[in-house]
């Protein structure tokens, strides 16, 4: 029991109380259900790796998005993490493909460009059949640095854009904070 609680507690966002609740819940469930969970965990770990093209999580060497013929293979959206791909996919707005960097440049944590999937991105872009690279990285200090860095390297090969930052939908201008408002002003565009 103590071992189980300890294991749960290692999961992100789980504290001692939640870990205890999860452990008690598991013990109450029928054995078949628990086996199903254990199998799902093991299989996910064994089968899911990274796509060799875009580095998104994938059970196959090349992920579904990269294989898809209905998607625009000439537009690449660069994100920091696989979670960002999942978030963007939910919008169903984006029809291109992705490139997951696997993190952000942060010298304090010893992460430089060589630790990220940047050279593979340059290789993809340098082949010449990419029309646009969209950088969708959050505007933190590290995100900004990574965006500028990737932008500089990709620019010689194709058009580079970055997503806009500003007010959330349904958000009132008067409640927006100054930092967000300043960014929204910076990224303003002409009304058409």
């Amino acid at each position: 029991m103590a071992r189980l609680i300890e294991q749960f507690q290692r999961l992100p966002g789980v504290g001692p109380k939640t870990a205890q609740r999860l452990a008690l819940h598991i013990l109450k469930r029928p054995e078949t259900e628990v086996q199903e969970l254990a199998r799902a965990l093991m299989e996910a770990k064994q089968q899911v790796g990274l796509c060799t093209v875009c580095f998104h999580l994938s059970a196959d060497p090349v992920c579904e998005i990269c294989r898809s013929t209905s998607r625009d293979q000439s537009t690449i959206c660069v994100v920091a993490d696989s979670r960002d791909v999942i978030a963007l996919e939910k919008t169903r707005e984006y029809q291109g493909v992705y490139h997951v960097l696997g993190g952000l440049i942060s010298p304090m944590e010893g992460i430089g460009p060589e630790q990220l999937h940047i050279s593979s991105l340059i290789k993809r872009v340098s082949k010449g059949n990419i029309a646009e690279v969209i950088i969708a990285i959050s505007p933190s200090v590290e995100g900004e640095t990574t965006t500028l860095y990737v932008g500089q390297l990709v620019k010689p090969f194709t058009k580079v854009t970055r997503i806009a930052f500003g007010l959330p939908m349904g958000g009132d201008l008067e409640y927006a904070d100054e930092v967000t408002l300043a960014r929204a002003l910076e990224g303003r565009r002409e009304l058409d």
Binding site: I105, T145, Y149, L153
Partner: peptide
Amino acid sequence: VDATELAVWDAQ
């Protein structure tokens, strides 16, 4: 060193 990386930090 990666001169591009340093240049990006300089800009920031």
